[in-house]
Nucleic acid binder design. Structure first.
Length: 114
DNA sequence: AATTTGACAGCGA
DNA sequence: GTCGCTGCCAAAT
């Protein structure tokens, strides 16, 4: 399984109303350079299956190159899903960060081995 | 096969 | 809190 596939697979599990950070994705996918995450999403932009608007930076702010209308559109999507904000630029990670369930993490680690 | 190019994170000043 | 530098992965050319 290629790093890109891992990213798509993992991100597709983030539920509506929650967000995940690049750092977390990289950690679970076993990718050392977080930039690869964005690189992957940028290439294969498929909003049908990949909720890339739910991926934010570790400090809760948005990445700079969202491919579907920029930060404004991304923020709006999150608001529509019920994600809470600390301020116009920052997501409330305390309340809206997606915690990967233990069983799901195990499952992902297993399929990522291949 | 070598070079370029990013949707980042962490740290020191 | 901000600014700049560094680390170093994968895909496309």
């Amino acid at each position: 399984m290629t790093p890109f596939e891992k990213v798509y697979k993992l991100v597709s599990f983030v539920p509506k109303g929650k967000v995940i950070t690049y750092k977390k994705v990289a950690e679970i996918a076993g990718i050392k350079d977080v930039r690869v995450i964005g690189f992957a999403l940028n290439k294969n932009k498929n909003p049908k299956k990949i909720p890339c608007h739910r991926v934010v930076k570790s400090d809760g702010t948005f990445a700079t190159g969202y491919a579907f209308g920029g930060k404004r559109a991304q923020k709006q999507k999150l608001i529509n899903e019920g994600v809470k904000f600390l301020n116009p630029e920052t997501v409330d990670l305390k309340r809206s960060l997606f915690k990967v369930p233990f069983n799901l993490e195990i499952y992902l680690r297993v399929i990522f081995l291949r």
